[in-house]
Design a binder for these strands. Structure first.
Length: 753
DNA sequence: GTGCCTGCTCACGGG
DNA sequence: GAGCAGGCAC
């Protein structure tokens, strides 16, 4: 028997209610992963075969974590449990049965870049003016349709006489036809086509329905209509479907998530058992209360009240700065000082932001302070040019029908094959209803091509050779052969720039990944398709490893599902978070504003002990300076839960361009801002890069902890703490009748009484 | 066909 | 502020 005595009452119920549809409404930090893993363990304990159990997650990281935790409870034997993401589950199904839809089992998965290239081609072919109608808009429309399981025909029907929609329908039709020709799926296809397969092929449907007796879905609030239908189909019959989610953490509407999947679960499954996990084991009471206060402003939620037995803990710290530059400086210095005092380690800290663009400044300051950090997200490793080039070679070798891949590398490195030649071949292929690569093979038959045919022939022969190598040797050997034959690395080395060096490093990393992939899998059944699939489906967050000691920088979206003792939410400004779109969109249930607020809720609930929110009065956005005020979400937090400078009006009369450094007044109320700003002799820009406590023009203090001091505004108080911030001292004082304030010694001008 | 320059557009989030 | 398309010279 597995031990569930450590679980609370509703958690135990979640584990033990194995039959029928179950909705577990799991508030942030309420131990839902524990419930899921124990539930799987319990099922196995009850004699259910592991291969009859399926658990679906959104990211590989979540899947890996779940598998590991199940392993820890039941020991080995859990291998058979199907733990996978939505996308990789569908790939597995399609690899096996995709031929019934007319796709080869070696299909390619197109990422966002690939689909953009394809769409560009289609617009050219259909003579659509892309200045007027953006490729991206078409792609968004198609993606939205696919997420709602609307195929090209249905889309066309719905378009009716609408001119704009008819054009979109034509593009959609062509787009889908080309994917099919290229033996490729885009991300949305993976789900939609699997649903199509299950709907239209009773044999396949019943195969999986008989395979999966128990199905669990994590992060259910993020599922879209297609994913819901997929799950519904798979669970159909037994209906032992357990979904876990939190409507308050639904933050993926923009990619099609349908919040009604969770809100209407009981309508879809009238006999569903609803279990609420409301005890939070993660955060202090103050943090939890702040989160509750913010999210309470949303309409249309499932009633839910998170509570904790934790003590209040520290108040939430608010810090507003003149610029994003100072904000980043403060965060970096603050982390450095806490680590130095051994109050936390680097890995305890996470800096969260709304947009990836904000990471640059913070990254800069982390480097400056010598803080080890890890940036999660941003430009995906696999979307770098050099990596995409090599992957395109691999795709060409693996799936000859993938025109996008072939055309990407046909002139990389330069082979003297230009746009004119390529379009001649493409036309020929189209006229003769054949693939691009097939046309290349018979290029001498294309009359207008002339002497370029020789070059094309050389390219074709090289691919043939590579295919031969692929069939006999390992993936890493194939990559090395490609590098050799293309002189790819050699050319970069000749360039000698830092950028070229970085590219070489990336290529080395790709090689290591290939080697690691081969080691992780049985060499007999490892295929190139599998490697390419893993690469295509990897998510940014998958690379995050919580065991290394570094500060994590990521978007609020990326932080979902994670927790950190110390969290910094940066850029808490109206216009940035919530963004302009949400502000103009207004409010009300299901609005963009509510989604932003849920995102804020997600951010707050990542914090275990310490939460700092920062904002900048001015920030460079899209190359222009933008002025902003505190985010409305910050103002939704009750005053008694925060300390800092929330409502401090600050005259904006002192922009000398000089960095005013760590000045952060903690007064609430009026102060004569601006004029009191000290002129520092040393700016951060010239500060030595060591963090070992180099003191620069810092006068010693004549008071110490426990002393009584006098402040110009707050009058008398007792010094509670003095922290050596390196360049200055941060002094914490309890002022009589005013409360606890933190300030920098050089600005506070405290006098010992 | 290639390489460079310029000017234009675009900008949230992600599998 | 960055990335890309288009124009131009070679």
């Amino acid at each position: 028997m597995i031990d569930i005595s450590t679980l609370n009452e509703p958690q135990q119920q979640g584990v033990l209610t194995t039959e029928g549809p179950v909705l577990i409404l799991a508030g942030a930090g309420s131990g839902k992963t524990r419930v899921l893993t124990h539930r799987v363990a319990h099922l196995i304990d009850q004699g259910i075969m592991p291969y009859n159990i399926m658990a679906i997650t959104f990211t590989n990281k979540a899947a890996a974590e779940m598998r590991e935790r199940i392993d820890n409870i039941v020991g080995y034997g859990s291998d058979g449990v199907w733990v996978a993401t939505f996308h990789s589950s569908c790939v597995r199904i399609l690899r096996r049965f995709g031929e019934r839809l007319g796709y080869g089992s070696n299909f390619t998965i197109y990422d966002t870049d690939d689909t953009k290239v394809l769409m560009k081609e289609i617009c050219k072919y259909l003579q659509i003016d892309t200045k007027q109608f953006k490729e991206k808009t078409f792609l968004n429309v198609i993606s939205a349709a696919k997420n709602e399981l609307i195929g090209p025909e249905e889309f066309s029907r719905r378009a009716g006489n609408d001119y704009n929609m008819s054009r979109q329908a034509a593009v959609y039709r062509e787009y889908q036809a080309r994917l099919r020709q290229n033996n490729a799926f885009d991300f949305d296809d993976l789900i939609m086509k699997t649903v199509e397969l299950l709907r239209n092929d009773a044999e396949v449907a019943s195969y999986y329905q008989n395979k999966f007796h128990y199905i669990m879905v994590d992060e259910y609030q993020d599922t879209n209509t297609a994913q819901f239908e997929l799950v519904r189909l798979l669970a159909s019959g037994r209906e032992n479907l357990c979904v876990v989610g939190d409507d308050d953490q639904s933050i993926y509407k923009f990619r099609g998530a349908n919040i009604y999947n969770i809100l209407n679960f009981e309508k879809h499954f009238p006999n569903a058992t609803i279990i609420k996990l409301e005890q939070n084991y993660r955060s202090t009471a103050n943090i939890l209360n702040a989160a509750n206060s913010v999210i309470a402003n949303n309409e249309g939620r499932k009633e839910k009240a998170l509570w904790t037995t934790e003590e209040a803990g520290e108040k939430i710290e608010l810090q507003q700065f003149d610029s994003a530059y100072e904000e980043a400086t403060y965060i970096a210095m603050n982390i450095a000082s806490h680590v130095k005092k051994h109050e936390c380690t680097y890995k305890d800290c996470a800096v969260l932001y709304r947009t990836n663009a904000q990471s640059r400044l913070i990254e800069e300051k982390m480097i400056f302070e010598g803080i080890p950090y890890k940036l999660v997200g941003g430009v995906n490793f696999y979307s770098r040019k050099e990596i995409k080039d090599i992957l395109a070679y691999l795709k060409t070798v693996d799936n000859a029908a993938d025109d996008i891949a072939v055309q990407r590398i046909i002139n990389i490195p330069k082979r003297g094959i230009g746009a004119t030649t390529i379009s001649k071949v493409a036309d020929y292929a189209r006229e003769n209803n054949m693939g691009f690569f097939d046309a290349l093979e018979v290029s001498d038959e294309i009359a207008s091509i002339g002497k370029s045919a020789v070059k094309l022939d050389g390219f074709v022969r090289m691919i043939m050779d590579l295919r031969d190598i692929a069939s006999k040797q390992s993936i890493s050997a194939l990559i090395e052969e490609i590098l050799l034959r293309t002189d790819y690395v050699a050319e970069l080395r000749a360039e000698g720039t830092d950028e070229a060096k970085a590219r070489i490093e990336n290529i080395d990393e790709l090689l290591s990944k290939a080697v690691a992939f081969e080691q992780d899998h049985d060499s007999d059944d490892v295929t190139l398709s599998m490697f390419l699939e893993e690469v295509a489906l990897v998510a940014d967050i998958d690379s995050y490893d919580a065991t290394d000691d570094y500060v994590v920088l990521m978007t609020l979206h990326g932080a979902k599902g994670l927790e950190f003792p110390r969290v910094y939410m940066s850029g808490m400004e109206d216009g940035l978070f919530p963004g302009m779109g949400a502000i103009y969109d207004g409010g009300g249930a299901d609005s963009e504003m509510e989604e932003e607020r849920r995102l804020c809720y997600v951010g707050i609930t990542r914090a275990m002990q310490h939460l700092t929110m920062t904002s900048a009065r001015q920030r460079m956005v899209r190359g222009e300076t933008q002025m902003s005020k505190w985010s409305r979400f910050v103002k939704e937090i009750p005053e008694e839960l925060v300390h800092g400078n929330l409502w401090e009006p600050k005259p904006r009369d002192d922009f000398s361009g000089m960095i005013s450094g760590g000045e952060y007044s903690v007064y609430r109320g009026s102060i004569s801002g601006g004029s009191h700003k000290p002129k520092l002799a040393t700016t951060y820009g010239s500060r030595p890069t060591n963090t070992s406590g180099t003191k620069i023009e810092k006068s010693e203090l004549d008071y110490t902890v426990g002393d009584r001091v006098n402040h110009i505004k707050f009058k008398e108080g007792t010094v509670l703490d003095i922290i050596d911030e390196g360049r200055d001292y941060e002094v914490t004082v309890e002022f009589d009748g005013v409360g606890v304030k933190k300030m920098f010694a050089s600005f506070a001008k405290l006098k010992k009484i």
